[in-house]
Design a protein around this nucleic acid. Structure first.
Length: 874
RNA sequence: GGAGGCUUAGCUCAGCUGGUUAGAGUGCCUGCUUCACACGCAGGAGGUCGGCGGUUCGAGCCCGCCAGUCUCCACCA
């Protein structure tokens, strides 16, 4: 015996030690071998603010499966890890922490604030990395990056300058989404819309000439203060005469015109819309078309400005109440209606977003979108599942300019400087000495930073050293597979694609593997507010990382959400334990000098059978992985290990291992080692820890299973004949077990078995199997037997008699056989029906017809055997 | 208002380009201290594959309509 394994697999003893072994051995490190084909994955960088959640666990499990598999296949694999600076989220956390000390950003100043932020990053940025290691992620930690590190900053500045010089980045005053809580602009993608219950306030605005009123409705009465017009549809007969007239804005008593604009729908509400260019994106557009003044009535934290003393300082909801009250007093309120409408909120803090006019930096999207669409259309980047390309196209085709400036301090500072002397903007890669226009020295850098996603968009090439022409960039780019959730396609995937097309002239990755959300056992989204999140680290503590990974891989099909439950992890843990014990069995039978895995010259029928099965498994698992069907691959491994290897082969091996023939013992051990080793290799990407642990205990070549060669299909291991023979034997064994169980025969009660068959050689070979697995005391095989009063069992290949007459109720026996006969006849009927159908014979492929014929023949044989058995019962 | 997913055993889900008798895990029932494993072994019950129609020799799978459900996108004030 080589090494004593514990009776139950205990992952906590194994995982940390094994991970250290891998790290110390530098097995994760990519050595940049020009002679090998590269396989590259860049990690979706988790936020430094974050803790590992199930989404990360799934995402990184899938990546690790792919990278480990390709590494074993001999690719030069690189998995680039890193973290994201997450400007809004991180800045919010730091501001929050400072608040506890009674400090604000302004108290500290920019420099001191950033010092704190970096401290914070140093303190917490490593946390999630450690958690990824717990999962078993085989990232090249020597190449770990951070979206705000120096290299990324260089890439960001390079891209900014290039786009600016091409006219694809511009600065402009526009209406943007403003978060009054985060106090920054956010992009369209960062706004989440949800239906909210609200009201529809019907108001009337009087004409200046006293000729009555126009009635309109609004969901935001407080913006009335900023109204600069009222609009109707030019084709609306009802209002033809009022276009061009002047209204008196209630409360404010400002004169505003009635304008005609196509934007107004005639059949919605009264067909009259109040226009507030400063606080509604549509109104802003209307305002531009009609040259309307823009009156801003809200401060940056969404309070009424000082220009309106009655309401100054009130926040937007307070002001709403006050204004409605005053409108009522003035008689301008007609009625109030309940109304549910779409309200946008900040994806970080969920405050209601305020459309706001301000000067921001934008990326002009249209020219960038086109190549990004083409690259997917041409198949250079493929989405899996395919349907996500449609979502991608739709977004890209309707994309608007991207607002990239943020009024935050934590992030990549915009490389633009303003000249105090001439007002010129200098955009440069390095801090300029003087104004590019007038040469003046009074330059101030733009205080804003860039959208976090601006730097993430460059991740696939900035992490490889771009803009420098590094060997890494040359070898590993474009990357191979990007693994991410569908919730992040717009934020990140799309932006990486257009950035890469523009900067690199090629796609950033060949394949995007999209996965869904991990939901709780009831199918609800895991969330902090619901408190239904499951902590992957707790699961790892309880069941092991392998069990967690296995669960996530098993339940997952691309693009679909999955439910997570403890029961599922427990099932995976049980599977790990099953494998562990199979390994224990093998190990306890080995001796000290057991040679490394090999296939012996002499093979028994069961050896050929298992090798044939294993060979198919190798082909199937590899094919599934190639198609990104990781869930299928893992299912096949489960079935093989549990049902084929453990339930049959190991049981069969006990015959020879418990026997006296040393050569047979040796051969059996060799096949066991070979099969187990190969299986471990196939399973390793999914369950890296346990497979390494067992592999190390087995005779092996090389330092680690993770750098051993991925098994390949071998023509020499195809054994069709033995496979068929074993099927015959196994079917008979199952039939005997079945009958005995039905008759409540205790397993301890052995019975003699008579097998009447045309396949005498096969069943004679199988005699020991019947003894071991079918409770046979002795087995006789002949072409036919003339036995009375026995239990008879009929399979397609044999009639089996069990002399258990004392247990048999003849009438019941006859009934049972009769039922089986009827069953078989019915099935035969279906098949004969098909075979007599000229359409089937003419159009079905030869192979299918042949299979049906064979089935029919088998059934006929079985029917004949059943009939004679019934006759014998009299 | 558009687009898409899902609907298969009590529960959670597989089912690849249409081809034998639709599978697994879990739960349930019956046996079993069989010398790797009770986180186990052997056996069993349980499905009109959401509904209707169509294409086909043949449909869980392809097409159409309908229903339920979830999601994404969209400026109806």
């Amino acid at each position: 015996m080589r090494k004593e394994l514990e009776k139950q697999y205990n992952p906590t003893n194994v995982e940390d030690r094994t991970y250290r072994f891998w790290e110390d051995g530098k097995f994760f490190h990519a050595n940049l071998d020009e002679n090998k084909k590269p396989y590259t994955i860049v990690i979706p960088p988790p936020n430094i603010t974050g803790q590992l959640h199930m989404g990360h666990a799934l995402d990184n499990t899938l990546q690790d499966i792919l990278i480990r598999w390709r590494r074993m296949q001999g690719y030069d694999t690189l998995w680039v890890p890193g973290t994201d600076h997450a400007s809004i989220a991180t800045e919010a956390k730091i501001v929050e922490a400072m608040k506890k000390e009674g400090l604000t950003k302004e108290d500290l100043g920019r420099e001191k604030f950033l010092e704190r932020a970096w401290d914070w990053k140093r303190q917490y940025g490593g946390r999630i990395v450690e958690q990824l290691k717990k999962l078993g992620s085989s990232c090249d930690w020597d190449r770990e990056r951070f979206t705000l590190d120096e290299g990324c900053n260089k890439a960001v500045r390079e891209v900014f300058v290039r786009l600016y010089e091409k006219g694809l980045i511009y600065r402009g005053e526009r209406i943007i989404n403003w978060c009054p809580h985060c106090l920054t602009s956010i992009s369209d993608a960062e706004v989440e819309y949800e239906d909210q219950a609200g009201h529809f306030w019907h108001l009337r605005y009087p004409f200046k000439d006293g000729s009555g009123y126009l009635e309109l409705a609004t969901t935001r009465p407080e913006t009335l203060l900023g109204d600069t017009a009222v609009a109707v549809n030019p084709n609306d007969e009802r209002y033809k005469d009022v276009v061009g007239k002047t209204l008196i804005l209630p409360l404010v008593h400002r004169e505003i015109p009635v304008v005609a604009d196509d934007y107004v729908e005639t059949d919605f509400g009264t067909g009259v819309v109040k226009i507030t260019p400063a606080h509604d994106p549509n109104d802003f557009e209307v305002g531009l078309r009609h040259n309307l003044p823009v009156i801003n009535v809200l401060t940056e934290d969404a309070k009424i400005v000082d220009d309106y003393p009655e309401y100054a300082g009130m926040d937007r909801y307070e002001a709403r109440k006050a204004i409605v009250r005053d409108l009522e007093k003035e008689g301008a309120l007609v009625r109030v209606e309940d109304y549910s409408h779409n309200v946008g909120s900040c994806y970080r803090c969920h405050s209601t977003v305020e459309p706001r006019i301000s000067k921001q930096w934008f990326v002009k999207m249209e020219p960038l979108a086109k190549p990004a669409i083409d690259v997917v259309k041409e198949g250079k980047t493929k989405f899996i599942p395919e349907r996500f390309s449609k979502i991608y196209y739709h977004w890209m085709e309707n994309i608007k300019d991207w607002c990239i400036s943020r009024q935050l301090w934590w992030g990549h500072r915009i490389p633009a400087w303003y000249c105090a002397d001439c007002g010129e903007i200098t955009v440069a890669r390095e801090t300029p000495d003087c104004c590019c226009k007038c040469g003046g020295h009074h330059l101030t850098q733009d205080p804003d930073t860039l959208d976090t996603w601006f730097s993430s968009a460059l991740w696939p090439f900035s992490t490889l050293g771009w803009p420098d022409e590094t060997p890494e960039l040359k070898h590993y780019f474009p990357t191979s597979t990007l693994v991410t959730g569908y919730d992040i396609i717009f934020f990140w995937v799309a932006r990486m694609i257009f950035s890469s097309c523009e900067q690199m002239g090629s796609q950033p990755f060949d394949t995007v593997l999209i996965h869904g959300l991990v939901r709780d056992a009831q199918g609800r989204k895991m969330s902090k507010s619901l408190g239904n999140g499951i902590d992957p680290l707790e699961i790892i503590d309880q069941y092991g990382a392998d069990a967690l990974r296995f669960t996530l891989a098993t339940g997952n099909s691309p693009g679909n959400d999955m439910r997570f439950s403890d029961e599922k992890v427990a099932a995976s843990r049980n599977f790990a334990n099953k494998l562990w014990n199979a390994a224990r069995f093998v190990l306890m039978n080995l001796d000290e000098n057991e040679p490394e895995p090999h296939i012996p010259e002499t093979l028994a029928i069961e050896d050929k059978w298992i090798l044939d099965q294993l060979n198919s498994l190798v082909a199937d698992v590899t094919a599934s992985l190639e198609k990104f069907e990781l869930g299928l691959a893992v299912q096949k491994l489960y079935d093989f290990i549990w049902d084929v290897l453990c339930d049959w082969y190991i049981e069969l091996c006990k015959i020879r291992l418990g026997g006296e023939d040393p050569e047979q013992k040796n051969n059996c051990r060799a096949v066991l080692v070979y099969v187990l080793t190969t299986t471990l290799q196939l399973l390793h990407p999914f369950m890296p820890f346990i497979t390494e642990e067992i592999w190390q205990a087995l005779p092996h070549e090389g330092e680690s299973i993770m750098v051993s060669a991925w098994p390949e299909f071998k023509e020499s291991l195809v054994f069709h004949e033995e496979e068929t023979e074993m099927e015959r034997i196994m079917t008979a064994i199952k039939a005997i077990r079945n009958r005995r169980a039905e008759m409540n025969v205790a397993p301890s009660k052995k019975a003699k078995v008579f097998i009447a068959t045309a396949y005498q050689d096969t069943f004679t070979t199988g005699v020991p199997f019947f003894k071991r697995l079918a409770s046979a005391s002795d087995v006789e095989v002949a072409e036919a037997f003339d036995i009375d009063g026995s239990v008879s069992i009929v399979t397609a290949d044999a009639t089996i008699y069990l002399p258990l007459a004392e247990l048999v109720d003849l009438a019941a026996e006859k009934k049972r056989l009769g039922k089986e006969l009827a069953d078989a006849e019915k099935k035969l009927g279906f098949i004969e029906n098909k075979l007599s159908n000229p359409g089937f014979l003419a159009k079905a492929p030869e192979k299918v017809v042949e299979e049906q014929r064979e089935q029919g023949e088998k059934l006929k044989e079985k029917i004949a055997l059943l009939q004679s058995s019934i006759e014998k019962l009299g």
